[in-house]
Design a protein around this nucleic acid. Structure first.
Lengths: 94, 94
DNA sequence: ATTCTAATTAGAAATATTTCTAAATAGAAT
DNA sequence: ATTCTATTTAGAAATATTTCTAATTAGAAT
């Protein structure tokens, strides 16, 4: 939901790896889970956090729930970080 | 130290605010602390985490410890996020 | 209608994080 | 040499996060 949630979501290595997996395209919860040595319940927990942070979309097809990267929110983080870098300095190049 | 530490460091709102303060330039631990309603010990704890994540430098002058933003590591995060966005897609614009 | 499959929710245990108070350090000023 | 000031460290309490097992949901297949 909020900006802070996005950073929090990105702070976990499992969740970052999930996002990396989704670079290639949509994957079902099960397909994501099979990349990790963890229960489906745990993966579901992480997907929930990514979803709350708006970092992923979900679409339901048959029995499956597919997850997909949402890059819009990534852009917000990019902005924050870029501002942090460029934002203030006293002697910026003109 | 590591990439993961950097994301973890960025996941806390107090630490992000500290970084924002440091955009303007060097500040002592005390100056940073006075922006927050927290004990100096707590601020010191957060500064320690930012330091371990290489997001800030410290320099000691007299009694004071000055902290300064290190944008090098911010660049690494920017890269990771940019790659996440652009990295994989099946139908990228040519 | 029953059973199977994919995924989520609930509740608990283990672990990690954030914050505090009190004590310690280290250098500056008297 | 003593005292003061800025900051950090230690240890503890409160809170949050991560993970598990077991139970639940909801739709698909038989």
């Amino acid at each position: 939901m909020s900006f802070a949630d996005t950073f929090k979501a990105l702070s976990d290595p499992v969740r970052r790896e999930i996002l990396q997996l989704l670079k290639t395209g949509k994957l079902s919860a099960g397909e994501i889970g099979s990349h990790f040595d963890m229960t489906g319940a745990t993966i579901s927990y992480h997907l929930g956090i990514l979803k709350k942070a708006d970092l992923v979309w979900e679409t339901k097809v048959k029995n499956y729930v597919y997850y997909e990267l949402n890059t819009t929110v990534v852009d917000e983080i990019l902005l924050w970080l870029t501002d942090l870098k460029g934002g203030g300095g006293n002697d910026e190049k003109v």
